[in-house]
Design a protein around this nucleic acid. Structure first.
Length: 269
DNA sequence: GTTGAGCGTT
């Protein structure tokens, strides 16, 4: 991963974690290591990445061996321009296990009896929204899908609850969010009986009732048939005899395009 | 190829 060759978290008991924010999406641990290592002994650097694309989320965690060095790094590297972006270095306030952190050090003397959740400030991730939609649209038959959805669902729940005062829940539902919630809820119910057979892909999702090509071409075509003619599509007007390109764009062949309309209606409804 | 508030992995 983003470590120095290790698979999991090293000895974080005596390490001081620093949160590096506002880093570029291309910045890797190797790029941050020389910068932070100059101010102290860097034990490990971890950059949370996306499960799907693998890109960094824009922040990293640098663990120092000593607090004084970490403090120095915070003062020296905070506001430093890295890769053309001004990074923000500060002590981590939360640990990987939701433990409290004091000056970047994880306090393990936390009572486990108290099932305390992360009461951090509600944060919103607009990236997760489009990313989540992209996920389910591509394929959600992954093994880590459940894990991811659970985490995101929790996260989204927090945000939703917090922002409910600003926007009514109906707004979200009106945007087509209701479907997600419904599925998520049903999934939670199904979690009681974790049966592999039930988790198998339903037959309703196996076939692809949606035809992207005709629908995509049918939509703008129906809207303004003349537009396609005006558009200088010099990509390959004659080199691609695909079904998308109708030989006769005239409305006289509109009956031929009835297939597209049917598909569109089926998909839309 | 894009984006920019925030707190983390085997």
């Amino acid at each position: 991963m983003s470590h120095f060759g290790r698979s999991g978290p090293p000895d974080i008991t005596d390490t001081y974690s620093l949160l590096v924010l506002n880093i570029t999406f291309r910045t890797t641990a190797d790029d941050l290591f020389p910068l932070f290592d100059k101010y102290g002994k860097v034990v490990d650097i971890f950059i949370p990445r996306d499960r799907r694309t693998g890109d960094s989320r824009g922040f990293a965690f640098v663990r120092y061996k000593y607090a004084d060095e970490a403090q120095k790094a915070v003062e020296r590297l905070d506001g430093r321009v890295v890769d053309g972006r001004e990074i923000t270095v500060q002590f981590a306030k939360y640990g990987p296990n939701a433990e409290r952190i004091h000056k970047g050090r994880i306090i393990e003397s936390f009572p486990k009896s108290k099932h305390r959740s992360r009461s951090r400030s509600p944060r919103r991730r607009h990236r997760d929204d489009y990313r989540d939609r992209d996920y389910r649209r591509r394929s959600r038959s992954r093994s880590y899908d459940r894990y991811e959805r659970d985490r995101y669902a929790r996260d989204r729940d927090y945000r939703h609850r917090s922002r409910s005062r600003s926007a009514s829940p109906d707004s979200y539902r009106g945007r087509g969010r209701g479907r997600y919630d419904d599925e998520r809820r049903s999934s939670s119910r199904s979690r009681d009986s974790a049966s592999p057979a039930r988790r198998s892909p339903s037959p309703r999702r196996s076939p692809s009732p949606r035809n992207p090509s005709p629908v995509k071409d049918g939509s703008p075509d129906r809207r303004s048939p003349d537009r396609r003619s005006l558009t200088p599509r010099s990509s390959s007007p004659h080199g691609r005899p695909a079904a998308s390109r109708s030989p006769s764009p005239r409305n006289s062949d509109g009956d031929v395009r009835v297939n597209s309309a049917s598909c569109e209606e089926l998909s839309g409804l």
